[in-house]
């Protein structure tokens, strides 16, 4: 069995990536400096945990999957995942390595559990991954990544209950994969934000801070909150937060927050949480 070391929930937004590149070049914008500083402890936590593999639950934003055939759940089983060009050229980072030997037993286990995933032999990762990646790791990336992409763009999107169940199945898969890996489970979705319609620019720090707190021990309360209500109070694109439930359910109920941080630099609430998985009882 692989070992689950812990979990991370983190926001993503294109400007987070743009501001990273600009920040390391010429110093961080005062609005973004807190996010850079606030993610240092997570980077340090990862350095100490030394995961060999990371499962990433994220969503694409019309940068890789086109609408010809749009998967609700897709898993990347390739040995390498290039960065997606979102139309502005590639950022100065290498692609991410995958591990088919790690991916396939998990894919098989998830399907057996009722999650009929689309298998991706090719997959390019957009800002859903690349916007936060350099805040947490230095390139060349020190671990293998297993991406699981969720449709968060074309409604109907998966229910909170289903995303939570995916996490529980992922946990079963990791603990029974017959492998011997040290795994961190990361889920990413923008916190409060809406980037279309007359509610463009809506943010809700109160909601975001509640969410960061409740994800630790009140996941049932969050999962029971209808996505439509989250979209009303925190912006339609905040529906992406439901992917965090997958990460939380992949950890033990007794997992506890090691660190969390929140700031609101632009039009998307930027929060991060790192949860420690309890040591298995020997």
């Amino acid at each position: 069995m692989s070992r689950i070391l812990g979990g991370i929930g983190i926001a993503h937004t294109p400007s987070m990536g743009y501001q990273y590149d600009k920040g390391v070049r010429e110093g961080f914008d005062p609005k973004w400096q807190p996010w850079y500083d606030g993610t240092r402890p997570v980077k340090q936590w990862l350095r100490e945990k030394r995961p060999s593999h990371m499962v990433v639950i994220y969503n694409d934003h019309m940068n890789y999957f086109d609408l010809k055939a749009y998967p609700t759940f897709a898993i990347g089983v390739a040995a390498h995942f290039p960065q997606a060009d979102e139309g502005y050229g590639l950022r100065p980072f290498p692609g991410v390595d995958g591990d088919p030997d790690f991916a396939w037993p998990i894919a098989r286990s998830l399907v057996r559990d009722g999650f009929d995933l689309t298998f991706c032999q090719e997959l390019e990762l957009d800002h859903g991954v690349y916007s936060w990646l350099p805040y947490l790791f230095d390139a060349p990336w020190p671990l293998k990544v297993l991406p699981i992409a969720v449709n968060m763009l074309m409604h109907p999107v998966p229910t909170p209950q289903r995303l939570h169940a995916l996490g529980a199945s992922l946990r079963r898969a990791l603990l029974n994969d017959g492998a011997n890996r040290d795994v961190v489970v990361l889920a990413t979705g923008g916190m409060s934000h809406q980037i279309h319609g007359t509610k463009f620019g809506l943010t809700n720090e109160k909601w975001d801070r509640y969410f960061l707190d409740a994800i630790e021990q009140r996941q049932d309360e969050l999962v029971a909150t209808p996505v439509e209500e989250i979209m009303q109070v925190a912006g339609t694109e905040a529906a992406e937060l439901a992917m965090w439930y997958t990460m939380r359910a992949a950890l033990a109920v007794s997992a506890r927050t090691h660190y969390s941080f929140y700031t609101l630099p632009a039009v998307t609430g930027c929060g991060v949480i790192a949860l420690d998985e309890p040591e298995p009882r020997g």
Partner: peptide
């Protein structure tokens, strides 16, 4: 810019108003 168009707002004024903070809960 697209956001300003969505809100029918002048771009230079619009960017000063971001983000639009609310504090309601479900």
């Amino acid at each position: 810019h697209v956001g300003a168009h969505m809100c029918g707002a002048n771009w230079d004024e619009f960017k000063q108003t971001l983000p639009h903070r609310v504090e309601i809960m479900p």
